[in-house]
């Protein structure tokens, strides 16, 4: 499809872009489609884009259900307000896209699932170096505060970050942290042209980063895992074969193997291929399979020495979407 068709679309659709628990990188990535943003402007009325354009929740609430053609929703669901907004945007949108890793898989905010609300609040309001002198009485945000003027409400903060699809029904997923501008544009074009894959699909290719990676590879046998700061890898050969925990082999392609290209292992931001239930499990299984030892103690040593933080390694982006979703609450110290 030519860009001309996209820009010359006659009837303007309605587009919403919303962010929940995320960093804002997704928005920057949208703006990074450069001048094509004008084409988007030509094709859509942007009805909601809290960090890029004006638009009030109230305005959206007043729209008929399904009035928005496409909502690109980034960020995971960590608070009651975000959950409400997810429900609202779902109701008002014909197509709801989980935009970027946070909405799709939880991403870095999802690693908060290794803690619970109490632990996170302790860190922020009690142990944090920036809050310590300011909060001597160890006060915490309250959902309700009674004031002479009436009751004030704050959204409540959840123990567990949920992905968008654990909250509401999702039509499409766009991978990446953030999604590459190029892919965003391709997705927008596809939406405009109505050439969308079946509902529930991830928009993008269905191979892994290895497919785009130019490095030479052999059959893999690993005696030791290194962390990135421990070695300077050879630029020609497969990073995993050099002992770096490169997630490229399990991660959906589409980025052009961005990280391996600059001699840095893939960290898995694009999530898994279609049909994979648990990204971390795939990585774990693959990496364990090529450990070059049959001795339980040696195996244990290789794993413990090389992978001190297994969750952060295998589930850096996908903990909230994983089968277990979070750390056992019972094991979190109070």
């Amino acid at each position: 499809m030519s860009e001309a068709t996209a820009t010359s679309a006659k009837t303007k659709g309605k587009l919403a872009i919303y962010w929940a628990a995320s960093c804002g990188g997704c928005e920057i990535s949208i703006l990074a489609i450069d001048e094509k943003i004008l084409d988007v402007g030509n094709a859509f009325d942007i009805v909601m884009f809290p960090c890029g354009a004006d638009g009030k929740v109230r305005d959206v609430e007043q729209m008929p259900d399904g009035a928005i053609d496409v909502c690109l929703f980034n960020g995971g669901i960590r608070t009651s307000e975000q959950e409400y907004m997810a429900q609202l945007m779902r109701r008002k949108s014909k197509v709801l896209v989980a935009f970027g890793s946070c909405a799709s898989e939880g991403c870095i905010p999802g690693l908060g699932n290794m803690s619970d609300r109490k632990q996170i609040f302790d860190t922020v309001y009690k142990e944090g170096s920036s809050t310590y002198p300011v909060n001597p009485k160890d006060e915490r945000p309250q959902a309700e505060t009674k004031m002479p003027e009436g009751t004030l409400h704050l959204p409540i903060f959840y123990d567990t970050l949920k992905t968008l699809d654990q909250t509401v029904d999702v039509d499409y997923y766009l991978p990446g942290c953030p999604p590459e501008a190029e892919n965003i544009w391709k997705a927008i074009v596809a939406i405009l042209e109505g050439k969308l894959p079946p509902k529930g699909s991830t928009i993008g290719v269905n191979t892994t980063v290895c497919d785009e990676c130019k490095r030479t590879r052999h059959e893999k046998k690993i005696k030791k895992f290194h962390r990135t700061w421990q070695i300077i890898p050879n630029e020609e050969e497969c990073l995993l074969e050099q002992g770096l925990l490169c997630c490229g082999l399990a991660t959906r392609a589409g980025c052009g193997s961005l990280c391996p290209q600059v001699n840095s292992p893939c960290i898995g931001c694009h999530g898994p291929n279609d049909g994979v239930e648990d990204f971390g499990a795939r990585l774990m299984s693959a990496m364990a399979s090529v450990i070059d030892s049959n001795d339980p103690e040696e195996i244990d040593g290789i794993i413990k020495d090389g992978i001190p933080d297994p969750v952060g390694t295998f589930y850096r982006f996908s903990l909230a979407k994983s089968l277990l979703r979070r750390k056992n609450k019972a094991a979190i110290a109070n």
């Binding site: 892994t208 082999l249 399979s289």
Partner: peptide, 13 residues
């Protein structure tokens, strides 16, 4: 084969 990216994990298996 469509989805295989040739990572060569399986060959060793």
């Amino acid at each position: 084969e469509e989805g295989c990216s040739g990572c060569k994990i399986c060959n060793t298996m």
